[in-house]
Amino acid sequence: MKPLVFEEVKIRWVILKANTLFTLKESLAYSLNNWGGLASTITYMLTYLVLLSAIFGRIKTLAGYNYSEILMLTLVSQFNFYLAWVWSIRNLDQLGEDVKTGKLDLILTKPLPALWYVTFQKVNLFMLVFEMWPATLPLIYLLIKNMDFQISLRGLFLGLLSFVFGHIAIHCFQFVMTTITFWTGEHRGLNGLGYSIAFFGDSIPLEAYPKRIMGLGLTAVPFLAHTALTTSLILGRTTDSRWVWLSFWVMAIFIIIKIKAWRLALRQYSSASS
């Protein structure tokens, strides 16, 4: 008998909760690791701000964006970066490693929605509190200090939608790349490339891209929606809501591709372990 829809949702919620709690316990167990991570993210942010101030010491605008608008772009890019690390990137690495070592058997033999489980195997909410906010504070301070633009409610809403759609779409893109591990047996290079594509030009405004790359970046290789398009919508530089609809459809198509790629990859999977 097929389980009811609410049972399907319930089991997914239970998995998500259990994995989040486990990841939290794991994070708290290695406290020194957290301090190290914090030092690393704060240093990154500070050096990046030094880089921006050096560039804007010589130029007034970058592709039409002034200093405060570029700070806004950086903030969106940082949110996307941390969110990706909270739930996506670690799981992609874990999946690649599990395929390579044969540990995936342990997940596949359990009566669980396997795709859901591998997508949310680790959800590191602790990172949001302990690493993201302290590291982002200097950026937020500079943004408030230099802010010379206005944000409309409509722009903020459209930007938020584009952020979510773009974030999910690029996760699915990276996931599809990771599934190639089922054929090659190695995941580091694939994940590294997926990561580089996902964060390609995250300090470059949408308006700077040539039309062809923009078209590609908003559809087939969706690296532009989560940060560049989102910022453009928030700042009111892009007002046409059709771009948000496009992001939505791209996300929907990528979710389907992700599911298909997963099924195809599982058919390829063989293991001699456990």
Binding site: Y30, L32, N33, W35, G36, G37, A39, S40, T43, Y44, T47
Partner: peptide
């Protein structure tokens, strides 16, 4: 946990 310090130096 010197790996994180390695990240710190890399950024700099």
């Amino acid at each position: 946990e010197a790996n994180h310090l390695q990240n710190v130096f890399s950024h700099i």
